[in-house]
Structures are given as structure tokens and as C-alpha cells.
Write a protein that binds this DNA or RNA. Structure first.
Lengths: 125, 125
DNA sequence: GGCCTCGTGCTAAATAATTAGCATGACCGG
DNA sequence: CCGGTCATGCTAATTATTTAGCACGAGGCC
């Protein structure tokens, strides 16, 4: 995943965020958008490299990542942990709870509490 | 940060991971390592772009990111939340606790528990 | 002093990435 | 039928990135 070029990465991020998108949607969403045909050329390259695929949606193509969002998440998380948190999921979670990246609502804290409780139960068995 | 080229990103990741490194160390750590002089040329570009700086360490330079690891972390976390978790810190934290990316030890769960408790206290005031 | 090693600054060539245009086909409306 | 719009496949030109070599200086050893 670190072998991606600038534009490849930008485009894949859009697809991971949205799940699927047309070339026109992707073009609009790209930072400093290139032309429609430049966008399509990039899509073709990513498809050739095996990162994405397309389906027909009426008269046009819609593009999807080849790996699931879950899978892509896990890969991205892992890379981020290694790069910024010495591999420590706990530190990353702490950063999230701490609000350096976002603020958790009470409901979200409850949700996380439930997960911790469950993780503790599983640790006991 | 999404405007970085392939090699730029690879190199910065190394510096964020290690905090500081010599050109030789960076060269070795780069995936599919280029020559020493190619590595230095890349460092020069990143320095010109303002992403890194160097200090003298005896007869050689040692390179550092221009932004702190804390800051870089926060940026990376934010981007990852937006791309893979619809902006939800709670979902990301859940993924971390859930172990899809890593398994938390009992001590780590305690640590996280303390942070949740504190966040809840702050929510009350 | 000469040679070697280590490190830097700089340059330019090679390579990869990015870009956009052309040709074509399908469809629709006048 | 013609023209316009929308979409694709494909190509090649342009631009950015990556690469590595050269020249030079510092330091150490013989």
C-alpha cells in the first residue's frame, strides 16, 4: 500500500470512503481535479494493477475497490500503528479517547466501555 | 499529506517512525532501496518542500521531520478516520479494542479504562 | 604527499506518473 | 438524418519523480 503514487492513493481513498463511485464522481472528489479523461486513465491503471474493478451501471461504469473496506481498514490501521504508535493499539485508542483527533460523545464512551468489558471477559476465559 | 509522492511518503514514514535518522539509515529502511545518492536527493527535496530539516551530527547530517510526531499522528489519525470510519473515532477505537488490528493486553485495557473514566468526568463538568 | 573512505552539493538523465486529446459508439431530440 | 451529449478505449505528450554519477572537501593512515 505504500507503493502507491500520489494520484493512485488519492483515488483509492475516495473509493474506500464511498465504497463505489463513477468516474465523474471521482474526478470531482479528487484534490485539484484533473480532466475527466485524466481521471479515467488513472482508473484504468488502478484496474490493471488490480486495486479496483468496475461494474456497468446503465450506460456508465461504476468503480469499486477490489478489497473490502474492512480489509483496507485493517491494513491502514496496522500501518498507522507501526508508523506513529510503535505498533501499540492501546496508544492509538488512547489518542482517540483523548480527543487529540476527535471528541467522543457519552454514547460513544458507553459503546467503547462495553467493548472493553467484553474484551476483559474474553481475557478471563 | 495526501499530496506526497510514493518515495516522499515512504521516507517521511521512516522519519515519523524513528524520529530521526541519517541518510544511510533511511536508505536501508526504504522499501526497494535506491542508491545512497538517490536517497540524499530525495531528502533534499523533502527539505526544500519544508517537510524535514537536518542537524549536523559529527561529520554527517541527521534528518528530522519538521512537525512533531504528536502532530503527525493526529493528522494521520484524522485522515484515517475520514477515509475508513466515516469520521467516527468511536468506530476506530472499537476496531482497535476488537482486535481486528491488534489485541490489547489486560494492562492496556486498564489504561484505556482510566482514560474513559476521565473523559466521562470531563463530560460531567 | 598520496590514497582511501566518508560525506556533501549539485546536476542531469532515466523513468514513472499524470495529463488531455482523438476516435468511436450509443442514445436522444429536432 | 444530423447534431449534440455522454461514455468508453486508446494513445502520446507533458510533467513530475526517481535515480545515480561527478566533483569536492575533510579526516585518517601509511
Amino acid at each position: 500500500m505504500t507503493g502507491l503514487s500520489r494520484r493512485e492513493r488519492q483515488l483509492l481513498d475516495i473509493l474506500y470512503t464511498r465504497g463505489r463511485a463513477t468516474a465523474a464522481e471521482i474526478q470531482t472528489a479528487l484534490p485539484d481535479p484533473p480532466s475527466y479523461s485524466a481521471t479515467r486513465a488513472l482508473l484504468r491503471i488502478l484496474e490493471q494493477k488490480g486495486h479496483i474493478r468496475h461494474e456497468s451501471d446503465g450506460p456508465r461504469y461504476v468503480f469499486l475497490p477490489r478489497i473490502s473496506r474492512q480489509k483496507a481498514r485493517a491494513i491502514a490501521l496496522k500501518h498507522m500503528l507501526a508508523t506513529f504508535f510503535d505498533g501499540s493499539a492501546a496508544e492509538a485508542a488512547a489518542a482517540l479517547v483523548d480527543g487529540s483527533a476527535a471528541k467522543l460523545s457519552p454514547a460513544e464512551l458507553d459503546q467503547l466501555q462495553a467493548l472493553i468489558d467484553r474484551a476483559r471477559k474474553e481475557n478471563k476465559s
